[in-house]
Each structure stands twice: as C-alpha cells, then as structure tokens.
Amino acid sequence: MKPITLALAGVLGFATPLAWAGNADLDAKFKELVDRSFKTTGIAQKERMIQLDFQKLCSALEAGEKVDPKKIEELRQAQEQTIRWPSDGKFLGNWKEGEKIAQSGRGLTWTDNPDTVNGGGCYNCHQMDQKELSYGNIGPSLSGYGKLRGNSEEVLKYAWRQIWNSKSFNLCSSMPRFGDAGILTEQQIKDVMGYLFDPESPVNKNHK
C-alpha cells in the first residue's frame, strides 16, 4: 500500500490564516491545545491533525461560521483537478471483491499496520445489497445502482468521480476521498464499481 500522500490540494491548514471570525486569541489557544493533546501512534502520524484548506473551511462552515461562497467554489474547483481516471480506461472490476471492500471498515487506524488491506466501509453509510440488513443512512441508498442508471460512459464517470473524490462535486461532502486520499487503490475502486454496476451483483439482483 503506497504511503498516504497528503493530497496537497491546498496549502496546509496551519499556514493559511483562515481563522474563524473574530477570535484570534482563541485560535491560538486551540492550535496549542491540539498540538499538546495528540501524538503519533503506529501509522497514524500526528501530522494528521494538520488541516487541508477545504477541511478548515468546511469545519468553520459546519460550526456555523460565515464563509465566503466564492471561496467554497474556488476550493471545489481545485478538488476537481485531483480526479484520476482509470489508467487502462476500464471502470468495472470484480464485484465479488468489491463486496468484500464494501463490507470491510479496516485500515488506516493506529491499530492497523502498513500492510493492513484498507476497506471502503461503504455499508457504514449506504444501503447497497437489500438483503444486507446492517447498513447506514448517512449516504443515500445505492440499491439497484447499475440496474436503475445503466452503465453509459457518463454514468460510469460520475460514479468513479464520486468515489475518487466526492469533494469535487460538493466541497464539504461527508464522503471520504477514497482515491485522492489513497484510501483505496485504483483496482479496489474498480471492484467497488463492479459491485455497483455488474448485473450479477446482489446490489442489482436483489433490488426490488
């Protein structure tokens, strides 16, 4: 698993003075609080606490701070540049492998090690195969994804881009950047796409 490259889509958070409105003193205290409260353990480096520019902006937005919409659009466009299409032009992989990735929430924690195979944890937030009762609702249901949408080039690209970096559509999306942040490999994303689009996949076969 190649080391996690902090996608430097923007200048590292600490550097940009994108402070929250009106309280520089509290900002300084907060930065100091984070610095003395976190540590490196295993593969989880302390540097994970340094925010990327859009992480900082979305944190302020979600906390109810006023944020300039032009800034949001500017950073969203920057995220669009991170999209990498499949190197061989093939979008769909093996849906059986995709199912395992969707079920597994492992990887990238400080109790994992570098050769832990990362999962996608899709079922944490999405319904996919209707027969699987244990699914989350933070994301929309993906049941019957391919069956309902077909697999035109346009639909494949839309789904690939959502998985690669959903922030390219909606800057503050809750969905992780599975491709851009190096969480899943290109092959793993192809397999998840297979799970979504393959007519044999239970995502489509069990869709009522």
């Binding site: 907060f30 984070v34 606490m49 944190s59 979600e62 950047r177």
Partner: peptide, 11 residues
C-alpha cells in the same frame, strides 16, 4: 472547535 475539526485522510 474540536467537535467540528475535520482532518486526516477521511476528512
């Protein structure tokens, strides 16, 4: 602030 602090590979 800590509660709303998005960071790390999963954002």
């Amino acid at each position: 602030r800590m509660f709303f602090y998005r960071t790390g590979p999963f954002d």
